[in-house]
Design a binder for these strands. Sequence first.
DNA 1: AAATTATTTAATCAAATGATTAATAAAATA
DNA 2: TATTTTATTAATCATTTGATTAAATAATTT
Lengths: 203, 203
Amino acid sequence: MAKVAKAELDLSTEEKIKEAASIVFTKKGYGNARTRDIAEEAGINLALLNYYFRSKEKLFQIVMAERIDKLFGVLAPILNDSTTTLEEKLDKITDNYITMLLEHPDLPIFVLSEIRNNPEQLSNRFQARKHLTESVFIKQLIARRNDINPFHFLMNLLGMTLFPFVAKPILQPIAGGEDNYRGMMEQRKKLIPGWIKMMLDNP
Amino acid sequence: MAKVAKAELDLSTEEKIKEAASIVFTKKGYGNARTRDIAEEAGINLALLNYYFRSKEKLFQIVMAERIDKLFGVLAPILNDSTTTLEEKLDKITDNYITMLLEHPDLPIFVLSEIRNNPEQLSNRFQARKHLTESVFIKQLIARRNDINPFHFLMNLLGMTLFPFVAKPILQPIAGGEDNYRGMMEQRKKLIPGWIKMMLDNP
DNA sequence: AAATTATTTAATCAAATGATTAATAAAATA
DNA sequence: TATTTTATTAATCATTTGATTAAATAATTT
């Protein structure tokens, strides 16, 4: 086999394991995930997992970093865009988040519960406070409402957007099943920005 | 020792284990919790744990049921109170929830992530849909706004109230430390009901 | 074609962990 | 008080589980 094809094969196996790890870790969490589960999910031998990624912990770190990026990657580029208004940012954030989370509904609960298990290591990685405080988004919020801590509005935005996914196992049956649930999430793409704007405008 | 004193001692040991289990399970989740951790936390021998509660799983079921009660017990009695207005309910829910969660901040993430691990068993326990749909609260919401699915407002209320605790490890540093975080949560007791009322009033 | 390197597997190890057992201590009962 | 029941412990078991090893196979290079 030629060199390119071999590299593809390498990548394929390594990627298969990473993909499987992502699925199993995200579904069960670190503590409940067995390396054997991951190997089976990837369709490979258990030893291969350790051959490619020395240990469960190492594999987890890689998966976790990528999952954190996925969850917060939606937010980061929008917050510091100085070409968009506050309203446009709100529209984008809710739309992008809800679209992504309808594809990956168990992402938030996974990331948040793993951060709980290891706050120092996982939470401090991003120096969120500084980055956020100096962001265009927060400045725009302050310019609009200097009487309320801007992080309140961020909590509201994230709470209304992410919480329905964090609590999906409870809320989906309440909403009347998967289809109704998805329908409501689609509605929220428009509703949430409207509500936030309302909060900002009414003193 | 007299009978009463003995009963007290029994209860004390059993309660000590349950209390320890509650602490360890809530902090680490089922999969990451070791029965030895629980025994140590309770200051008793490991075998005693199995003497009182046959297995880790059984002990967990008991703790879990009690934790679910704690998390949803705040909501249930308020939702069906026909003597209070919608506004009063909103005030009570946020106040009671935030007060309770400042004492037990890791409760929501624990319950929600365990429900994710076992949705059928834990989520179906409460026939939430029927109870909720027929609740005074939902009827009051519909009476006020028949153009929007009332569960949207419930998601907003719970999202704005619970999410800051679900995401505490991330938000607390952003807020500027524990004291600032608590201060903001206290503010939200008044802010959130105001925001929800605003959503209900503005068409 | 032979040698070298990379990949994959079956078998196995060692530690962690949930659970049990057998002995002892304490308490209740008769 | 003697006996029976209940509570507690130390030691140990059996399984699970993350990880390793040594051998086989496949791919690549020389």
